[in-house]
């Protein structure tokens, strides 16, 4: 599949935005402006960028505790994201949710999720809505290798398969669930083989190469949109940071991290590909990088200028009226 210049540069921009957003978030965390925990996505950018590139604003996603990337790739507003991290009234969740619960229903993002595996059946439910209301909308569920060992994975995939629902299951195999390596949590080598047991296609994808994630995501989303049912995509990827920001990471080696960073960085791979195919010049990358930096800075400024969330109005959001 040939990817056109505009698409290629857009994929690069989305990945760059995720990377830069999280660098700034870490800085703000270090300045004690962010409370609680952040789980960074850096290293995995090609997954969300490549798959969500095929989604419209009226398609849905469910996300995870590691949700910044999914949120940005679904075209969220960076200012409202930063405002949420800073506990401001203008944040996506009015300071009630924080990093682990950012949702943007206007763009079909049904939320980051603090419960591992919690989003899987919710995406199936959104796909049920799409089918029931006779639309061609689709749902994508992003979840981790750890999430794949929850009961919700089994129940969700089976439900989606028997009713041929328009949903794509994107399992991000970043090699660890907290400290637990994938080899200790699965007895199968190739996780995608699980799909056969549910009667749906299962594909293993190089999650570091955005061409691959874009291609596989495109096929799975198109299949769902056509009404042909769900797909399981297993994306091999890696998180550069710890499980959470500040994780001492005694369970893996520095060499391993360096190996992935040096040889399998999604931004570097995209740059190489785009330059090699002469889809763009180094100057194009410089321009995009500058624009990304500026967009992120605007977001931080917006958040810092926003008022703190109000405790007075807390009871308002408990029930719908």
């Amino acid at each position: 599949m040939n990817i056109a210049r505009d698409t290629a540069l857009e994929l690069y921009r989305v990945m760059g935005t995720i990377r830069r957003f999280e660098q700034r978030a870490e800085q703000l965390f270090g300045e004690n402006k962010i409370w609680g925990t952040i789980h960074n996505y850096s290293g995995q950018e090609a997954v969300a960028a490549g798959v969500s590139a095929h989604l419209r604003d009226d398609d849905w996603i469910t996300s995870t505790h590691r949700g910044h990337g999914h949120c940005i790739a679904k075209r969220a507003d960076l200012g409202k994201m930063f405002a949420e991290l800073l506990g401001r009234e203008t944040g996506y969740c009015r300071g009630r949710g924080g990093s682990m619960h950012i949702a943007d229903t206007s763009k079909g993002n049904l939320g980051a999720n603090g419960i591992v595996g919690g989003g899987i059946p919710i995406a199936v439910g959104a796909a049920l809505t799409a089918k029931q209301t006779k639309t061609d909308r689709v749902a994508v569920s992003y979840f981790g290798d750890g999430g794949a060992n929850q009961g919700t994975f089994h129940e969700g995939l089976n439900l989606a398969a028997i009713w041929a629902l328009p949903v794509v299951f994107v399992l991000e195999n970043n090699q660890y669930a907290e400290t637990n390596p994938v080899r200790d949590a699965f007895a199968v080598e190739d996780i995608a083989t699980r799909a056969a047991g549910y009667g749906m296609p299962g594909v293993t994808v190089n999650g570091q190469d955005v061409r691959e994630t874009y291609r596989a995501g495109g096929e799975a989303v198109a299949r769902a949109r056509r009404g042909d049912g769900p797909t399981l995509l297993v994306m091999d990827t890696y998180r550069y940071g710890g499980h959470y920001y500040g994780d001492p990471q005694v369970y893996r080696s520095k060499e391993e991290i360096e190996e992935w960073r040096a040889k399998r960085d999604p931004l570097a791979i995209a740059r190489d590909w785009i330059l090699t195919e002469k889809l763009a010049s180094p100057a194009d990358f410089d321009r995009i990088d500058t624009e990304v930096d500026a967009a992120v800075e605007r977001g931080v400024k917006f958040a810092e200028a926003s008022p703190p969330a109000s405790p007075i109005t807390l009871p308002e959001d408990v029930y719908a009226t």
């Binding site: 409370w35 609680g36 506990g87 300071g95 009630r96 924080g98 969330a309 405790p311 807390l314």
Partner: peptide, 16 residues
Amino acid sequence: GLETPIPYAQHLEKSV
């Protein structure tokens, strides 16, 4: 505790 879920922001969290 107040009859709400626990909010994220530090000052909100303390208030419930």
